[in-house]
Amino acid sequence: MSTILKVENLIKYYKTGEAVVKAVDNTNLEIIRGEFTVIVGRSGSGKSTLLHLIGGLDRPDSGRVIMDGQDIFSMKEDQLARLRRNKIGFIFQDYNLIPSLTVWENVVLPLGLDKKKVRKDKIMEILSKIGMEDRKDARPDTLSGGQKQRTAIARALAASPAIILADEPTGNLDSKTELEVMSLLKKCVNEFGQTLVMITHDETIAQMADKVIYIEDGKVVTVS
């Protein structure tokens, strides 16, 4: 099993007035290719900041994130943007779909940004696997929460990224839909061999993962 992502001595502090918040405090961890990893922590423990840093959405004060052997923070902004669209798929708690685009357009957006040819059959296969093939021309405002999150998952899968980073993807969903979405994510790992890193505060969901990383006050406390 090879390491796809390595976090070394990562530090990110925020200043709020006089106080300094240690959002990520000298964190080290490794993500193995094809594994489903969950990062668990209470609200304010720094898990979202860690995910943003891993995904190159934010820059650390110090430390490195090595993805496929490349230090992502040595890259310029535009290189980092290209890395994100090629190697990372994002799933957010509040879906973050583009409201003016249809389901299909949202899904193919990362490919479009990368000027890649859209393989219609592949996208249809993904939509069919997540049960959204009938709603491909619908706009996000006409979808339920579960459908929106399924669309976001399809979007994350469309560019065949090396890793999917999911930020509390079930946080806004009811328990039935939550289960549906989690099964879908598991299916992605199992059927597509996808690497998935997910953050949650829900211990039950964490039990579904291959590896669970507990984080507290910006530090990794245990890995199981």
Binding site: P99, S100, L101, T102, V103, W104, E105, V108, L109, L111, G112, L113, K115, K117, V118, K120, K136, D137, R139, D141
Partner: peptide
């Protein structure tokens, strides 16, 4: 919801999806 509807609440886009999304299409949409 300003991003979804016009003032009278009408749906503002009725076309089918574009197969591919390009920057000009994003602007057009």
């Amino acid at each position: 919801r300003p991003e979804c509807t016009d003032r009278k609440g009408k749906r503002v886009r009725k076309e089918k999806s574009f197969l591919e999304i390009t920057l000009p299409r994003l602007s057009y949409i």
